Simulated scan of single mutants.
Amino acid sequence: MKQFLIPLAIIASPAAAQDNAEVALAKATLEALQGPSFAANREYCGYIVIDADGELAATPAVQGAIGHCEADEPPEDSVPIASYHTHGAFDYDTPAEFPSVGDLEADEAEGVDGYISTPGGRLWYVDGVDQIASQLCGVGCLSQHPDFEAGLDGELQISYTIDELRALEAE
Score class of each variant (00 low, 15 high):
Val101Trp: 06
Val101Asn: 07
Gly102Thr: 13
Asp103Asn: 13
Asp103Ile: 03
Asp103Trp: 04
Leu104Ala: 07
Glu105Ser: 14
Glu105Ala: 14
Ala106Leu: 11
Ala106Ser: 13
Asp107Lys: 15
Glu108His: 11
Ala109Cys: 05
Ala109Arg: 13
Glu110Pro: 04
Gly111Leu: 08
Gly111Lys: 10
Val112Leu: 08
Asp113Lys: 08
Asp113Cys: 05
Gly114Lys: 15
Tyr115Ala: 00
Ile116Trp: 01
Ile116Met: 02
Ser117Pro: 05
Thr118Phe: 00
Thr118Tyr: 00
Gly120Leu: 02
Gly121Asn: 03
Arg122Pro: 02
Leu123Glu: 00
Leu123Asn: 01
Trp124Leu: 03
Trp124Ile: 02
Tyr125Gln: 09
Tyr125Val: 02
Tyr125Asn: 09
Tyr125Glu: 04
Val126Lys: 13
Val126Asp: 04
Asp127Thr: 03
Gly128Arg: 13
Gly128Thr: 07
Val129Trp: 08
Val129Gly: 07
Val129Gln: 11
Val129Tyr: 08
Asp130Thr: 11
Gln131Asn: 09
Ile132Glu: 10
Ala133Tyr: 02
Ser134Glu: 01
Leu136Phe: 00
Leu136Val: 00
Cys137Asn: 10
Cys137Gly: 10
Cys137Lys: 12
Val139Asn: 14
Gly140Ala: 12
Cys141Tyr: 08
Leu142Tyr: 00
Ser143Met: 03
Gln144Val: 05
Gln144Ser: 14
Pro146Val: 07
Phe148Pro: 13
Phe148Arg: 13
Glu149Met: 15
Glu149Arg: 15
Gly151Asn: 13
Gly151Thr: 15
Gly151Ala: 14
Leu152Phe: 12
Asp153Arg: 14
Gly154Ala: 12
Leu156His: 08
Gln157Phe: 10
Gln157Pro: 08
Ile158Arg: 15
Ile158Ser: 13
Ile158Asp: 06
Ser159Pro: 07
Tyr160Val: 05
Tyr160Thr: 05
Thr161Lys: 09
Thr161Glu: 10
Asp163Ser: 12
Glu164Gly: 13
Glu164Cys: 12
Leu165Pro: 08
Leu165Gln: 11
Arg166Met: 10
